[in-house]
Simulated scan of single mutants.
Amino acid sequence: MVVIRHARQNEIGLLAAIGLRAWAKAIAGLADAARMRDAAESAFVDFLTEHWLSVLLIEEENQVCGWAAREDLDGTISDLWIDPAAQGMGLGRALLADMEQRMAAEGFDVASAKTHAQNTAAVAFFQSAGYRVKWLSTAYSQKLDRDMEFIGLSKEL
């Protein structure tokens, strides 16, 4: 049974580990994940420590499989991470749909997200859910510890 619920503060370590595994898969071939692992782990822990109240997680059979966040509790999805072992099972789609429903209920007309431009799997995921590319820019990535091209996507709710 799939359950989507708010994260709890005592789950920060678990959520950071899931984010780190998903991040490592997403940057495979783009950067040296092993070299950047400590910085990425710190970034996840810092983010989750500060923003755990904005995090929804998804469980299947009582096991946490992924999480998503709206860092500023606005119409922007700042994070969406599914454990690589659970990818391809529709959990990301279910979590995204839940977040979109919550945003619409809160009065937001548009949902937006961003990812690094070379993360073709994430771009395809959002596009398959009805998101369209709105912008491309270069910015510093704390998790990658370098400048990266980012792509912004949005969808009318």
Rank of each mutant, 00 (worst) to 15 (best):
residue 3 V to C: 11
residue 5 R to T: 13
residue 6 H to C: 14
residue 8 R to C: 05
residue 8 R to T: 13
residue 9 Q to V: 13
residue 12 I to G: 06
residue 13 G to P: 07
residue 17 A to M: 11
residue 17 A to W: 07
residue 21 R to M: 02
residue 22 A to L: 07
residue 23 W to D: 00
residue 23 W to Y: 01
residue 24 A to W: 03
residue 25 K to D: 15
residue 26 A to H: 03
residue 30 L to K: 15
residue 34 A to K: 13
residue 35 R to I: 09
residue 36 M to V: 10
residue 36 M to D: 12
residue 38 D to K: 06
residue 40 A to M: 01
residue 40 A to K: 00
residue 42 S to N: 09
residue 43 A to Y: 01
residue 44 F to N: 00
residue 45 V to C: 04
residue 46 D to E: 07
residue 47 F to E: 13
residue 50 E to N: 10
residue 51 H to I: 06
residue 52 W to T: 12
residue 53 L to E: 15
residue 55 V to H: 14
residue 55 V to P: 12
residue 57 L to T: 11
residue 59 E to Y: 08
residue 59 E to C: 03
residue 60 E to T: 06
residue 62 N to A: 09
residue 62 N to G: 03
residue 62 N to P: 01
residue 64 V to R: 03
residue 65 C to T: 07
residue 65 C to R: 03
residue 66 G to K: 09
residue 66 G to M: 01
residue 69 A to N: 11
residue 72 D to S: 14
residue 73 L to G: 01
residue 74 D to W: 02
residue 81 W to C: 10
residue 81 W to A: 09
residue 81 W to Q: 14
residue 83 D to L: 08
residue 89 M to W: 09
residue 89 M to D: 11
residue 89 M to Q: 09
residue 92 G to F: 05
residue 94 A to L: 15
residue 96 L to V: 05
residue 97 A to K: 14
residue 98 D to V: 09
residue 99 M to G: 15
residue 102 R to E: 14
residue 103 M to Q: 15
residue 105 A to L: 11
residue 106 E to A: 08
residue 107 G to D: 10
residue 109 D to A: 15
residue 109 D to M: 07
residue 112 S to K: 09
residue 112 S to L: 06
residue 113 A to W: 01
residue 113 A to H: 00
residue 113 A to P: 00
residue 116 H to W: 10
residue 118 Q to G: 10
residue 118 Q to N: 04
residue 119 N to M: 01
residue 121 A to M: 03
residue 124 A to T: 04
residue 129 A to C: 03
residue 130 G to N: 05
residue 137 S to Q: 04
residue 138 T to G: 05
residue 139 A to I: 00
residue 143 K to G: 03
residue 145 D to G: 01
residue 145 D to M: 04
residue 147 D to S: 07
residue 149 E to P: 03
residue 150 F to S: 04
residue 150 F to I: 05
residue 152 G to F: 01
residue 153 L to A: 00
residue 153 L to Q: 00
